[in-house]
Amino acid sequence: MLDDLDRRLLRHWQADATLSPGELADLCAISAGKAARRIARMQEAGIVQGVSAVIDWAALGYSVEVSLRVTLDKTVARAFDEFLAAAREVPEVTEIQTFLGRVDVRLSIIARDMGDYQSIYRDRILTLPHIAEVEALMQIAQIKAVEALPL
């Protein structure tokens, strides 16, 4: 699937996504054309799904992050689909994960302050369909957050 050259290209690109194919080529001691072809092949295969900017939400005034563990009413046939569709529409939801077990879904929510969070929780979260139970975990500090894979 991936050879050593692909992994080298990805390691450098993960470290600095602003690198051009030519710059990646220089770092990997290959031609720019070969680097560009390798990158295009990995993009077409879905290995590289995009390049994005990482935004510091706190720098934009979002000082509260809450993780909500949601248990859904599983007596409703389309509870998962309807809940997930509605949760995707809440702008302050930055991540949605589903699980097997007692907790069905985890939502990551950002808010400007506790008053803002309280409004989001009452007006947008508690109105989501098919919620049986919600447990909130307030984030105190982020110790590690890594997007890069160990290639």
Rank of each mutant, 00 (worst) to 15 (best):
H12K: 05
A77R: 15
E135P: 00
E135F: 07
I39A: 07
L10R: 03
A15I: 03
A40G: 02
A86G: 03
A86T: 02
L100G: 12
V76Q: 11
D56C: 08
P150Q: 14
E44W: 03
V70P: 05
K74Y: 10
L100P: 09
A29E: 12
A40N: 11
A15K: 14
A136G: 00
W13T: 00
G33Y: 01
S52F: 14
R78M: 07
T94S: 15
A79I: 05
M42P: 00
R8L: 11
E135W: 04
R78W: 04
S52W: 10
E65C: 06
L137P: 00
K144F: 06
R7G: 00
E133G: 06
S108G: 06
E133V: 13
Q43N: 00
L137Y: 10
V54L: 13
D6M: 03
R8S: 11
I39D: 06
Q49K: 14
P129I: 11
C28S: 06
D56E: 12
L10F: 01
L107Q: 03
V76A: 10
D16F: 05
E147Q: 10
S119L: 13
D116I: 05
L5G: 00
D113A: 02
L126P: 09
P21Q: 01
A85Q: 15
L149S: 07
A132P: 02
L60A: 10
A141Q: 14
I30G: 04
